[in-house]
Design a protein around this nucleic acid. Structure first.
Lengths: 158, 158
DNA sequence: TACGATAGTCAACGTGGTTGACGAAATAGT
DNA sequence: ACTATTTCGTCAACCACGTTGACTATCGTA
């Protein structure tokens, strides 16, 4: 195995990845707050995305996000409370409670997507578009992930 | 402003950065567990790093990690409980409680650094060394961070 | 000496995640 | 048709981590 370059210690790689992630998320939420969505937390955006335009149930949301149905239920509670999600009964299955986005939820999600596009564009202006493309491609190669796990707080903290 | 490329939506960038971070941290801890440190959580490694070879105090650790002294104290409690840190009185200042690494703490931190080097090496074998260097350089440019904030669970969750 | 600043801890609280248990309702099987 | 099993949602208890506020003990200085 090759000798590690002392000027590029391996522990910096995760720090830089986290810093990049954090920068994007912080910039997103600063702009979202400016556009009328100050209550949205990082977690909420991902949950909203997972609910999607067609809606879901708590159990299904939990599966999509890699957390328990109980945890998903709590997140739904919160997003209902701040006006981003709605709960309704399923006429075809009285056990299920259908979760859908409110107009406010749709607006927040749409703006998030736009802002992320703008942030990526800003990176492309700074680094050059081909560097950003390469960065994405490289991460796809080594991280090879197609889905998102929402258990970040518990995962990181323990 | 340029039009966003529909095949590269901006929201994927943070997802990929998080996936990369998560992959590295998960690989690290899988290997750490194999090498006799199964109790170490992601948070702990960063806290240990911040304590450093010279030791610290709770207040100083909190400042280094961007969290309150109370939160730092709790993390120290935990790391003392699982045998990675020691607390001692400062003979020159009875208010302070000096926090230092135990031999086990030193071992865990040393192994972490080695494993991170190996993981970076693995990325370099897969992507090519120059791509990994470029990835780091680019992230340094757009994220421009020189320190680490440990409040990830609270930051992300709210 | 008296006073302000600092270190550490306790307590209360909020957010998020987990497991276990439960009733209600749908589905499958005899 | 009538059980038996599975599934959905929720409640309760618990843990980890973060926060702010309050308090004691100690240091440093005017």
């Amino acid at each position: 195995m090759a000798i590690a370059d002392p000027s590029r210690p391996g522990y910096q790689l995760p720090l830089l990845l986290l810093a990049g992630f954090r920068t994007l998320i912080d910039d997103l939420h600063a702009e979202l707050a400016r556009q009328g969505h100050p209550e949205l937390r990082p977690l909420h955006g991902f949950a909203l995305q997972a609910v999607g335009a067609d809606g879901t149930t708590a159990t299904e949301l939990g599966q999509r996000l890699g957390i328990s149905k109980q945890a998903a239920g709590k997140t739904i509670d919160r997003l209902v409370a701040i006006g981003y999600l709605d709960r309704a009964n399923d006429p075809r299955d009285a056990r299920r409670r259908l979760v859908t986005m409110t107009p406010r939820g749709v607006d927040g999600l749409r703006r998030s997507a736009e802002i992320f596009d703008q942030l990526r564009e800003r990176w492309a202006e700074t680094l050059g578009p081909e560097r950003v493309d390469a960065l994405e491609d490289d991460l796809r190669t080594v991280a090879a992930t197609n889905w998102f796990r929402l258990d970040v707080p518990g995962w990181f903290g323990g």
